[in-house]
Design a protein around this nucleic acid. Structure first.
Lengths: 238, 238
DNA sequence: GTTGACAGGATTGTTAACAATCTTTTCCCT
DNA sequence: AGGGAAAAGATTGTTAACAATCCTGTCAAC
């Protein structure tokens, strides 16, 4: 119902080529910022037009996105933005609970002053967006903070893994989260940053664990998956 | 120099189709079992013949393997089994240090008796292979134990992530490990299993962390990456 | 004898057409 | 009028040919 999911800003000019990595990144961002909702169909021809590339390139991108479970590939049906099941939602937050406290500790112990300063600017933006009431911006920055932290850890593998988990978390919170609580509490981020500034790895680890648990606690995973779920179960429930 | 890297056992019969997931899995296993060494070229035509599928299918598989950094795709040069750099090696073991203790705790707290029994059988096989002196078998089972543990955690996301990390670890140990210490000490695995049987999550977590640290300690990451590395640096070193 | 360029062969990357499947519309029958 | 089957259209999956790049072996020049 919206316009093209992740459109080019330059009007299909015969300018420079876009890299497949950039396309994947663009779709990742669109998912994280909630411009692409779970279950949205990603038609090949539309994506070709949107990015101005051939079909093969798009198919490669969709395969890459599917390998990270951000999109779902259905046989002869096409690509759809993933709709995580309750079990998958639990898996994702369990994985984050394992990874992110360790990441926070790494950052506290080894990140440079410049990187921590960058995180501080980030939090300032986040708070400003929140006060300003720009919901999309707040959601974007909230997720981005976690990614920025992973980047500051200096571990490319952890960063890549977390990118996947954060994108999927965005879908999960949209589906199972309480309405209105779609962003991390910026206070949590600020407190965590204090521990980082103090180089207190143990505190950073603990605060991140608590922060993730708070987020997971706002989810209601009791029901069945809404999108793509069992229709008869949904209808027979009332 | 060897025969085909991961050959079909049924002689190219017009039997049943092989799935792309299975091809990826076969190559993953070949890497984990050291039948495919770091830097080995994976030519498309050879893989097509080996698995009896078209080129497109193979290219998709190579892209999936590249997305997990198990193979490296060089522009116009083809696909090669990845040769992790020292920095990547550090990243991989840092990620494992974050994930696997948490996995061990999950298994201790929630795995069924049947799954723990399966792990016990595994360790028995491992010890037998080790005593028997069948090195390949020992390496295979040693890595497989960690995967089996992830599977027993009941978390599909953690399992998938760890599969990637274990495969890459196999390459890393082959490159940077001390010769002869290419397998986990089976005693570590046995001790860990005791903690799992006792449902002692904290102990399992601690033992796994120590186990991974032991493995990482046997690596020598001081030099440059041998395969694909900077040749002048290697030569000017002596 | 060694170095450089050049041509031939092989391999990878891309494009386009074709085949198969799914979705939607239309039309006929009850 | 409602339901269902069949055809038309659209979308995805696959195959094959083409173009571009790289590697190898040969030959000439210094």
């Amino acid at each position: 119902m919206n316009e093209s999911p992740a459109q080019e800003t330059d009007g299909s000019g015969a300018g420079d080529e876009i890299t497949e990595t950039e396309i994947v990144e663009r779709i990742f961002e669109a998912v994280m910022e909630r411009r692409l909702a779970a279950g949205t169909k990603l038609s090949e021809s539309e994506l070709c037009k949107a990015f101005g590339v051939g079909r093969m390139r798009i198919r490669r991108c969709l395969l890459l996105l599917a390998s990270r479970e951000v999109v779902e590939l259905r046989e002869n049906r096409g690509a759809y933005v993933a709709s995580p099941t309750p079990a998958q939602a639990r898996d994702v937050f369990e994985a984050r609970a394992a990874l992110e406290p360790a990441i926070a500790r790494l950052v506290a112990e080894r990140a440079g002053a410049a990187e921590i300063a960058a995180l501080e600017r980030f939090i300032a933006e986040e708070a400003a967006a929140h006060d300003r009431g720009s919901r999309h911006e707040a959601i974007r920055l909230s997720g981005q903070f976690h990614l920025q932290l992973a980047e500051a850890s200096g571990n490319a593998t952890l960063e890549r893994i977390l990118r996947e988990l954060v994108a999927r978390s965005s879908l999960i919170v949209a589906i199972y989260g309480a309405p209105g609580l779609e962003t991390c509490r910026d206070h949590d981020h600020a407190t965590l940053l204090q521990a980082l500034r103090a180089r207190d790895g143990a505190a950073a680890e603990r605060l991140m664990a608590a922060h993730l648990q708070d987020i997971a606690a706002t989810l209601d995973l009791s029901g069945r998956a809404p999108a793509g779920g069992d229709l008869v179960a949904v209808l027979s429930a009332r």
